[in-house]
Amino acid sequence: MDNSKFFHAKMAFYADSLEEVYDQSPIIIEATIKNNVGEIEFGPESYFTFTEAKVDDILKGDGLSKNDTINIIQTKYLIEDPVLEEGSRKILFLTKYDAKEYANNDYTYACVGGYQGIYNMNEDDTISGSLTGDDLAFNNKGMNNKAENNAASDANTMLKDFAAGKTKEEFIKEIKSFK
Results as ranks from 00 to 15, higher is better:
A151D: 14
I29V: 15
G142R: 09
Q116T: 02
K54E: 15
K146I: 10
F162V: 01
E86Y: 03
K141F: 05
D135M: 11
E80K: 10
K90H: 11
D134E: 13
A164T: 15
A103N: 05
D81Y: 04
C111D: 00
G165D: 00
I70V: 15
G43L: 07
F6C: 08
S128C: 09
K168Y: 05
L78C: 11
R89V: 04
L84T: 05
E101Q: 12
K10F: 04
A15K: 01
D2M: 07
N120C: 06
N122K: 10
E20V: 12
A9G: 10
Y77V: 13
I118M: 07
T157N: 15
M121R: 02
L59P: 01
A110I: 09
E123I: 08
T95D: 07
G61V: 13
K96G: 03
F162G: 00
G61M: 04
S4Y: 05
D2V: 11
N145E: 03
M11D: 10
E45M: 11
Y109Q: 02
E80S: 14
S65A: 14
A147V: 13
K141E: 10
T126M: 03
E39M: 11
C111T: 14
G43R: 12
T51Q: 04
F48R: 05
E148N: 05
I27C: 01
F138L: 14
D134R: 10
I72T: 04
D124I: 12
A147C: 04
E101S: 09
A137D: 11
I73Y: 02
K96H: 11
A164L: 13
P82N: 08
E39G: 02
L136M: 14
E30S: 08
N35S: 12
N140Y: 09
G63E: 03
I118K: 01
M158Y: 14
